[in-house]
Design a protein around this nucleic acid. Structure first.
Length: 428
DNA sequence: TCTGGGGTCCTAGGACCC
DNA sequence: TCTGGGGTCCTAGGACCC
C-alpha cells in the first residue's frame, strides 16, 4: 500500500483576512463579519476572538462591545471572498498536481514524493507564497491522513512557535499530541457525537483511537469508523480532485423586515429562484425538481407557520422561466394569510449535466433549444454589467424584503467601478 | 427593533414487487 | 395457535461540514 502524505492548507480567519487585504490599517485590530442580513457574527479576526466573543452570536447581543473595544464590523461580501478564494486556490495549485478544494477557505494537497525531512520546509514555502501573492495568511497541517492533517493544521495555528506549519507525519510523540485534542475538535465529530463519546469515557483523540471498531460503527455509522481509523493513521478518505457536480442548490434568505403579502413573498422567491437556476447554468447542469418553502420567525412570540411543497419540472431544464412559473403557483398554494413571514427558500434538485439529461420525445432538450441561447445572453450581460442588470419582472422592483447589509465593503476585485484606488501622497 | 446560509452522507423504515 | 422473505426504491430525519 502506498503511503500518502496530505497537507491541509487553511486560511486564517478567512473573511476577516479578506477585508484586511484592502484595509491594511486594520491589521492586529479586532474585525468581525456578519451573516446575511447582518444577523450574527460568522467570522472574526484573532483579536476579536480573544475578547471572548464566539461565532454565531447575534449581532445585537454584542453591539455594546463594538465601541468599547474598537471593533470594525463588516457585512458579508461573498463576491469578494469568492474571488479571493479563487486566487488562493490558484496559488496552491502551483505546489501540487493533486489538490482538493474542500471549502471556500481550505484545500487538501497531496505531498506524495516530497522527502519526509523537507515537508515542513515545503509547507513554509506554501505559506509564504500565498501570503505574498494574495495577502491571505494560511496555516498548513501535514499528515498521513486527511483527519491527521486537519489536527496538524490546528496545532500549526495554535502554537506560534511552529510559524503556522506543523508536520505530524510519523511524529514520535503522536499519542501525546492526540491526547491534547478534545473529541469535539476532531473533524467529523460534532456536538452530538462528542456528548455521546464523553459519556462512554472517550474524551480525547488518543482515547478514541482505542475504541473498538464494532462499537464505533454501531454508534457513529461507517462514517465515524473511518474517522477513528484515520486517527490511527490508516487513510480512508481519498483526495477528491475532480469537482463533482452538485446534487442540490439551495437559495434562501431571511427578510430584512417581516413580509405578510403573498405578492412580496412571490417576488422574493422569484429572485432566489433566478439565482439558483443561474448557479445551475454556471456548471452546465439542468434540474427537474424544485421545492419552495416559507416560514415565520421562530424567535418571535407570535403565530407560527411553516410549509413546503415540491414539483417536477417535466423536462430537465436550466431555463429560468420554467422554474419561476412553478414557484409562483406553488407558493400560492402553501401561503396562508395572517402571518408575518421571515423567510422563503428555493431548493433545486434532481440535477444532472446538460449532456446527460434524459430526453423527452415530445419536447426539445434544453441543450439544443433556443431557450439556452436566451439564457446564455442574459448571463453574459449580467456578468459584464453586474448581476441583476437583467432581471425578471417577477422579482419585483421595490424589493422591500431584501436583506440588510449596513456595513458592506466595495466589490474591490469583481467590479470595475469599485476597484481600490491608490492615491499618491499629497503632503508636499 | 435585531437570531445566517449552503452543502454532504448515512440509516431506518415504509411501499411495493415478485 | 404459529401469516415468507428478499430485493429495490424512496423519503425523512439525523449526523456532520464550512
Amino acid at each position: 500500500m502506498k503511503k500518502e502524505i496530505y497537507a491541509l492548507v487553511d486560511c486564517n480567519n478567512f473573511y476577516a483576512s479578506c477585508e484586511r487585504v484592502f484595509r491594511p490599517n486594520l491589521a492586529r485590530k479586532p474585525v468581525g463579519i456578519l451573516s446575511n442580513n447582518d444577523g450574527c457574527i460568522v467570522a472574526m479576526s484573532k483579536e476579536m476572538k480573544d475578547l471572548g466573543i464566539t461565532r454565531g452570536v447575534p449581532y445585537f447581543q454584542i453591539k455594546h462591545l463594538i465601541k468599547k473595544h474598537d471593533i470594525t464590523i463588516f457585512s458579508s461580501n461573498y463576491s469578494l471572498y469568492g474571488d479571493m478564494s479563487a486566487r488562493v486556490m490558484k496559488t496552491l495549485a502551483t505546489f501540487s498536481p493533486e489538490i482538493e478544494i474542500y471549502s471556500i477557505d481550505e484545500a487538501f494537497l497531496s505531498l506524495q514524493g516530497i522527502e519526509k525531512e523537507k515537508l515542513t520546509e515545503f509547507g513554509q514555502n506554501i505559506r509564504q507564497t500565498v501570503q505574498k501573492w494574495t495577502g491571505i495568511p494560511v496555516s498548513v497541517g501535514i499528515g498521513r491522513t486527511k483527519t491527521l492533517a486537519k489536527i496538524a493544521a490546528r496545532i500549526a495555528k495554535k502554537y506560534p512557535g511552529y510559524r503556522n506549519v506543523f508536520d505530524i507525519t510519523d511524529h514520535p510523540k503522536l499519542d501525546n499530541i492526540l491526547e491534547t485534542i478534545p473529541v469535539e475538535k476532531i473533524w467529523g465529530v460534532g456536538f452530538q457525537y462528542a456528548k455521546m463519546l464523553k459519556k462512554y469515557g472517550y474524551n480525547n483523540a488518543f482515547e478514541l483511537t482505542n475504541a473498538p471498531d464494532n462499537w464505533v460503527k454501531k454508534r457513529m455509522t461507517i462514517v465515524g469508523l473511518r474517522t477513528v481509523k484515520e486517527l490511527r493513521g490508516i487513510s480512508c478518505l481519498e483526495l477528491e480532485t475532480d469537482m463533482l457536480s452538485r446534487k442540490q442548490i439551495v437559495s434562501s434568505r431571511s427578510f430584512g423586515q417581516p413580509v405578510t403579502k403573498l405578492e412580496e413573498l412571490q417576488e422574493a422567491a422569484a429572485s432566489y429562484c433566478t439565482r439558483a437556476v443561474e448557479k445551475l447554468r454556471e456548471q452546465d447542469l439542468v434540474a427537474s425538481q424544485v421545492m419552495v418553502y416559507l416560514t415565520t420567525n421562530r424567535f418571535k412570540n407570535e403565530p407560527q407557520y411553516a410549509n413546503f411543497i415540491s414539483a417536477k419540472i417535466p423536462v430537465p431544464s436550466a431555463y429560468t422561466p420554467d422554474f419561476l412559473v412553478k414557484v409562483k403557483e406553488m407558493l400560492k398554494s402553501i401561503y396562508r394569510s395572517g402571518y408575518s413571514y421571515k423567510k422563503v427558500g428555493i431548493m433545486i434538485s434532481d440535477i444532472v449535466h446538460q449532456k446527460n439529461a434524459p430526453l423527452d420525445f415530445f419536447a426539445p432538450c434544453y441543450l439544443d433549444d433556443k431557450r439556452k441561447i436566451i439564457m446564455d445572453k442574459v448571463d453574459s450581460v449580467n456578468r459584464r454589467w453586474g448581476s441583476g442588470t437583467l432581471r425578471y419582472a417577477a422579482s419585483g422592483m421595490e424589493q422591500k424584503w431584501s436583506m440588510r447589509r449596513e456595513f458592506l465593503t466595495p466589490r474591490y476585485t469583481t467590479c470595475w467601478q469599485e476597484l481600490p484606488l491608490v492615491k499618491a501622497e499629497e503632503n508636499e
